[in-house]
């Protein structure tokens, strides 16, 4: 509860931020890399929402995409491989007032971090997760990732990948408590921005898979989709993404998709040709773990100390009791 006067004053002196206020350093990504498009869209979102840099945190694991926090002039946590989500969950639990974003790659999220990914969806904590999916391990110079298409020749699969690619969307849509799933492609920045913005405004874990080009290792992989608008299926709905008239002229392949329809979302998500782009599923009524588990009362120093003491006491050996041979309680 904020007093009326404070609210009014805060609004009166609202600080405005420019894109530059969120830019930090020159990205070390290759020129032409789709990560740049995601970075630009996210910086735009921060500016448009006037997110206070000190109230915003980007968390990542390991990979090209996970360099993301370095390029945001906010708080950030460049974590360890596959562990972006647990770190972000810890941050949200301790500081529910922060805007938490997670940037993770297809290797980071869908391979070594897969267990955390599944449970993060189930926990449904309020954060925006962007899966930068370029379908390859780029930072370590081209090894197949779980989302690499079958037959892709890479340093680890010189005869071509043997397995069907994993579809991060259908996996996410299959987990209990899923509350927001969308797919964007880096070559339609307007829609990507709208999707990331909707994901940010959704209360709960919003999972956005961003299909992203890797010009260095897979320059040809997505070309057919890039150059043929018919291979993109735009999902539109009055409760989801509305397509601008200029975009509608280029992308004629569109479908009205109600984001509350989970079955239809699963069906649509399983396609890649044409690739569905838009909000597949949204359910704002799924409870957030941080709210279910909020402890009543304030975390005062005394309370924290008491809790710690109680925990440590479980393992304390009491010299006197030990001497008397009595079992410690």
């Amino acid at each position: 509860m904020t007093s009326a006067a404070t609210e009014c004053l805060l609004r009166m002196y609202d600080e405005h931020h420019e894109l530059e206020d969120y830019q930090s350093g020159v990205p070390r990504w290759c020129t032409g890399c789709g990560d740049n498009a995601i970075l630009a869209a996210v910086q735009r979102l921060c500016r448009d929402e006037d997110l206070r840099p000190e109230k915003t945190v980007f968390v990542s694991g390991i990979g090209c995409s996970s360099r993301f926090p370095h390029y945001m002039k906010t708080y950030g946590f460049h974590g360890i491989h596959g562990r972006a989500l647990p770190v972000a969950e810890g941050i949200k639990m301790a500081r529910p007032d922060l805007n938490v974003f997670v940037n993770t790659g297809d290797g980071d999220c869908c391979s070594i971090g897969a267990a955390h990914w599944i449970h993060a969806i189930r926990y449904n904590m309020n954060m925006t997760v962007m899966l930068h999916d370029n379908q390859i391990y780029g930072l370590t110079k081209m090894q197949a990732s779980p989302t690499s298409p079958k037959g892709l020749k890479s340093n680890t699969t010189p005869r071509g990948a043997y397995l069907e690619a994993l579809n991060p969307l259908t996996v996410t849509l299959g987990v209990q408590n899923v509350s927001f799933v969308a797919q964007a492609v880096d070559w339609i920045p307007e829609v990507m921005y709208d999707i990331i913005s909707a994901a940010f405004h959704h209360k709960g874990l919003s999972f956005v898979r961003i299909v992203q080009r890797c010009p260095e290792w897979l320059p040809k992989l997505l070309e057919p989709w890039l150059h043929d608008p018919e291979k993109v299926l735009l999902l539109e709905h009055e409760d989801a993404i509305r397509i601008s008239p200029s975009l509608a002229q280029v992308y004629k392949n569109r479908r009205r998709h109600d984001p509350s329809d989970l079955d239809r979302a699963r069906e649509t998500a399983s396609g890649f040709d044409p690739i569905p782009v838009g909000i597949l599923y949204r359910n704002p009524r799924v409870p957030c773990y941080e709210e279910l588990r909020t402890a009543a009362g304030l975390r005062s120093t005394e309370r924290i100390r008491k809790g710690l003491e109680a925990e440590f006491d479980k393992f304390t050996v009491w010299p006197q009791q030990a001497a008397e041979g009595a079992p410690a309680e």
Binding site: E18, L19, P27, T31, G32, C33, G34, N36, A37, L39, A40, Q43, R44, D186, W187, I188, P189, E190, P215, S246
Partner: peptide
């Protein structure tokens, strides 16, 4: 509006090509 901010053109000539306020 369709620019993906990938820096390709900027790397070629950053005087000739520039970014607008949305970094496009």
């Amino acid at each position: 509006p369709r620019c993906t901010s990938c820096n390709e053109c900027i790397a070629i000539n950053d005087k000739m090509f520039g970014y607008n306020r949305d970094k496009q």
